[in-house]
Design a protein around this nucleic acid. Structure first.
Lengths: 228, 228
DNA sequence: AATTTATTTAATGGATAATTTAATTTCAAG
DNA sequence: CTTGAAATTAAATTATCCATTAAATAAATT
């Protein structure tokens, strides 16, 4: 009922035609890049299917037709997002693991560190990932699962299995579950941030605090001393 | 394009009127309960908003009108689901923690154990929780966050902070992040099950294996022996 | 017989969304 | 200047889909 029929309130209803642009020689007006950013934010917040082009357009202060002008269709917009935003980030995440050598401890320290760092710098990723990869029917599931995930998952499992065989890793762990545990301790908490911030205001929980917490838990566990 | 106009294929198009029922004295026909089950399954799979009543009806081999007969509206159907399915399960989860005394180790063992047990017995929970609680805009967020979560979260935090103050808990952990970590190691992996099962077929990862893995990780950590 | 319960059929009434076409304005090149 | 290309909007097009209600029907209960 708060919805205005159509005229809405485009405070700057921008009249037709090409806008008088600062077309400096350096960069073109960058409208496309801006649209991608806005779309990414909204897709992360509401989910891809639940985000109409008209919403993206409104937030970007343009019309849906312009989205078609730049991207051709909603599907191709998603494609562009995957190619230009998701793949690069996923690749960067993968690098952290690959480059880290075969010592499991240092590999983990590097991986967790860069992971938390990258995710904090790209806060749209965790919620988007939860919706579109983790959830059944997510639109990015296939694309990301077929490319990025297996390489990482197998690498982690193999590192772990190797260490375990040599008695250097807690024998009660399942190497195949280690990758899931890693994600459950990093991407998941960041996606859940709005929830725990609502439960106990915790502005002092910085990415660095999270990193320390996760690595402490992974490397040493709770270190409970009994004594009831 | 696989969608049939309307006539669909209700192989048993059930003729009108009250069906000839086994109305045995013991239990009434149980149709309502069945509808709730079907709705729950579909809501978990596709999300609440994305599940039309017509789909629930089709899967339950009835018509949408019957859903209104029993529940009045889609909203009220969701209410019924929360009251009759979610609250009880959440409460049971909470019990596991409350009853477990104040020794942190045994509390955790009990909590993780019952949690994994209950979730495995109710596989609809993790995906539903991811969609409707974890995701922004989820329809169950408010209801569950305001009731169940704070009690649990504060309890865990206080137990942890207490233990930490007495030097009995790894000092690098943040007590407030412990609850999130617990969920990230239990509910999250179960919600992600379809993904890792697709990556490496792992039929031998039973709930018991997961429980052992999680407790091993929590209580002892990776126990890495360096040596590269 | 009469009434209540369970069910379907068949509207009803909205709402929304992606995409296309045509018009408009500015910019850049000749 | 002139002209064509680029960027934008307005308006139309087209395609659904979905919750809810009203009325009809059949069985069960009293």
């Amino acid at each position: 009922m708060t919805r205005t029929p159509t005229p809405a309130k485009p405070s700057t209803p921008r009249r037709r035609g090409r806008p008088a642009g600062r077309s400096g020689p350096g960069r073109d007006s960058d409208a496309r890049a801006h649209l991608l950013e806005v779309a990414l934010r909204l897709f992360a917040e509401h989910g891809i299917a639940a985000t109409p082009l008209s919403l993206i357009a409104r937030k970007a202060r343009v019309t849906p037709a312009l989205l078609h002008y730049y991207f051709g269709s909603k599907d191709k917009l998603v494609d562009a997002l995957v190619d230009e935003k998701l793949q690069p980030l996923s690749a960067a995440l993968g690098q952290g693991l690959i480059r880290s050598g075969h010592d499991l401890r240092s590999a983990l320290e590097v991986f967790v560190g860069t992971l938390i760092e990258l995710l904090s710098a790209n806060p749209w990723f965790p919620p988007l990932w939860v919706r579109e990869v983790l959830s059944e029917g997510g639109q990015l599931r296939k694309r990301l699962i077929e490319r990025v995930a297996p390489a990482l998952a197998h690498r982690v499992r193999d590192l772990a299995a190797g260490a375990q065989a040599k008695g250097r890793l807690n024998a009660d762990l399942d190497p195949r579950l280690l990758m899931v545990s890693l994600i459950g301790l990093t991407i998941f908490p960041l996606a859940a941030q709005p929830i725990w911030r609502a439960i106990y205001a915790a502005d002092d929980i910085t990415p660095e605090v999270l990193r320390r917490h996760v690595l402490a838990l992974l490397l040493r566990g709770l270190e409970l001393d009994d004594a009831n």
